[in-house]
Nucleic acid binder design. Sequence first.
DNA 1: CGAGATGTTGAATATAATCAAACAACGTGG
DNA 2: CCACGTTGTTTGATTATATTCAACATCTCG
Lengths: 249, 249
Amino acid sequence: MAVVIRAVRETDRPLYRAPCGACATCDVRTMAVCAALADDEVEALESIMTATHLQANEMLVQEGDPRSKVFTLTSGMLRLSVGLPDGRRQITGFLLPGDYLGLADDEIYTASAEAVGAAALCAFPVRQMDALVERFPKLKDRLHRFTRAALRQARENQLILGRLAPVEKLASFLVLLSDRAVEHRLPASPVSLPMPRADIADYLGLTVETVSRSFTKLRNQGLVAMPDPHSIEICDRRALAAVAGLPPH
Amino acid sequence: MAVVIRAVRETDRPLYRAPCGACATCDVRTMAVCAALADDEVEALESIMTATHLQANEMLVQEGDPRSKVFTLTSGMLRLSVGLPDGRRQITGFLLPGDYLGLADDEIYTASAEAVGAAALCAFPVRQMDALVERFPKLKDRLHRFTRAALRQARENQLILGRLAPVEKLASFLVLLSDRAVEHRLPASPVSLPMPRADIADYLGLTVETVSRSFTKLRNQGLVAMPDPHSIEICDRRALAAVAGLPPH
DNA sequence: CGAGATGTTGAATATAATCAAACAACGTGG
DNA sequence: CCACGTTGTTTGATTATATTCAACATCTCG
């Protein structure tokens, strides 16, 4: 009988545990904000966390809505975007597993977030998260560090949007994604592009046609190969970085 | 005699006091990061502070240099910029009195900062500043708040750079400067443009010629008047905001 | 298998960059 | 004080290039 009781408890817990198991065994445990906490401290985070799943193109938060929750993405990809009244859209960034959603905002979300494909994340009510942040200074420091990194990235993006030609923009995007893949212990090539061309266009300030033509140019120059539109092999990473106008790194 | 001694002390102090007098009487006391501290607490900040002055176009920090100091601008204007190897430049923002320089960076400066005209600022060694930030949690919180605001601004800039037409870019720039002037208790119009056209171009991702032509268009549409190139009267703020593709606010 | 969504390519058009020149403002030195 | 060169701004003509409009190809999925 005791065994049965234990089993019930086990099956109840998944409602409030991380998508890939408890935080302790989570894929992004070492890179997300929760890495600031020791294993016994994450339990506090876990206790206010709700695991959430999104379908492709499902909207998670909408620009202008009150900021009621913050999130850590555990799998999949999110696009962050801001829009104009006439429908024009700028994607300000793509979130990968381990990234935090809610760094920039105070009272209301200033950007929308949608899932590119299926995605999973941990949701935290802001009030309870704020309390935890006060309780664990390391957590606050790590959030601040993430915010600074996001600010540097946003400024880098200003350079890309304001001063790079279309092929240069695309090259810099591919190098960025490749570098991020490496941070996630994935191969630098081929790089996976789960988002449609329209998203890349709205991220780089171009039209879909120009994005497509820029891919073709990079392919014709032998810098990349495209087994399919959503998978890009980087043939010459150094030359690609040079096209992007970036130091070889 | 006592009078003479007091006079000597008075003339010695300026070496280590804020440009406009002690912190307690500083112009930006209420808006800069130091507003987080009570009057008796700012003394700690004052004690590690060095007043600095810059001439027009003098470089304060250079992209890539080790981040040894952080600053609060007390008068004048700074331009923040990032550059490409071939000389192309993107200005990521203009700093006004009360703004903090050093929000985004960790070990090294990721952007250069130069004075637009003559400028004055408070300089703080990072090591000592870090210690004060730990000592005064309110100071850390205010810095974090500033960083979040800078991130929101940088994302707004991505929209402007990626999706607005030249006249729209310029209109949004003028509205931004006007709003910031109001925050500084200055009139919303005329707005002062101390920077050259080349800076505006590098901020908006345009050429100087296109900036100039866009000014002419706004003038011909009766939205602004230009008594001289560095002073812009906003004739129809609502229409200007509409051109910028922004909500009327 | 067909229909819609997504991606690529082609031709045209619009538009910002480039090249060039005129003009104004300013400080310097004769 | 004025001529002069310098710098910054504006305007004009031309060119390069990304967008637009259009067609076609490819892929997905009922």
